[in-house]
């Protein structure tokens, strides 16, 4: 099943050697974390129907570092929402780590978001007036992890990102780059199959942005699968491979 799906969807969008995509051999041997097949998303506002995605096929493998690139309005945000299990496709099938997502209940989707996906947002989206440690520990709260273990794991994640000295600072006491590192620690703490980064450098100066990209590379090198969504081709080229979205379709 996975093999045929790969054969059907894999060749088109990923066959571009210029983007530095993993070779075919590597692709076959590694399991696909994400399998999108014919994903369509239509927004209905009254009589008007807008197709944000019109049949997208995409595979992302374990250990991949993929950039989804496109201008605003291209449908890349919709793709992120669907990949991140925040939204459901109107048609098509989505398997995340082999699980067909469209059959899951809302509560199951929440569980998938909590356990399998780590989000990194453009605007950091940390909980205000809450310490870095509590921010990082919060995803574990919803998994029923004990308070002691939550704090230990959050502490470890923050230390890994060089924020060991800042665990008790609130977001307003941290710089943008530090806030984004806290957000990455929060994404990492659940040991997700996938980190989904939506314009992670968009609100940062170039130095802090470069640090974040370097950090993502570091995580990728240690085995974390990363999907980066951006409109900025300078950022996109730093990923291992890129796909471009235009008018709801993946293009070369």
């Amino acid at each position: 099943m996975r093999g045929t799906a790969f054969a059907a969807g894999g060749q088109g969008p990923f066959g571009n050697p210029a983007t530095g995509a993993p070779g075919t051999d590597a692709s076959v041997s590694a399991p696909a974390v994400i399998e999108l097949r014919g994903i369509t998303r239509i927004y209905s506002t009254g009589r008007l129907e807008v197709a944000a995605l019109r049949g997208v096929d995409l595979d992302v493998w374990q250990g991949d570092f993929l950039a989804i690139v496109g201008p605003s309005g291209s449908g890349k945000s919709t793709m992120m929402n669907i990949i991140g299990c925040l939204d459901r496709p109107t048609a098509g099938s989505y398997r995340l780590g082999g699980t067909p997502v469209e059959q899951l209940s809302d509560d199951d989707l929440a569980r998938v978001r909590g356990r399998a996906i780590g989000f990194v947002f453009q605007s950091f989206n940390l909980l205000p007036r809450t310490s870095a440690l509590e921010n990082v520990a919060t995803p574990l709260l919803y998994q029923g992890v004990s308070r002691k273990e939550r704090h230990a794991r959050a502490q470890a994640a923050l230390e890994r990102l060089g924020l060991g000295e800042r665990v008790h600072h609130e977001p307003s006491e941290l710089s943008g780059g530090q806030q984004q590192r806290v957000a990455i620690a929060r994404a990492l703490v659940t040991e997700p199959a996938l980190i989904l980064a939506d314009e992670p450098t968009g609100n940062l100066d170039s130095q802090a942005g470069a640090d974040v990209i370097a950090l993502l590379h570091e995580l990728n090198a240690s085995g974390t699968t990363i999907v980066l969504i951006t409109h900025d081709s300078d950022v996109a080229v730093q990923a291992l491979r890129q796909v471009h979205v235009r008018d709801g379709l993946l293009v070369q």
Partner: peptide, 15 residues
């Protein structure tokens, strides 16, 4: 926004 963040990082509606 806090509610949105919590939902994104795994909170169910009942949480």
């Amino acid at each position: 926004r806090e509610i949105g963040i919590r939902k994104a990082i795994g909170a169910r509606s009942s949480d």
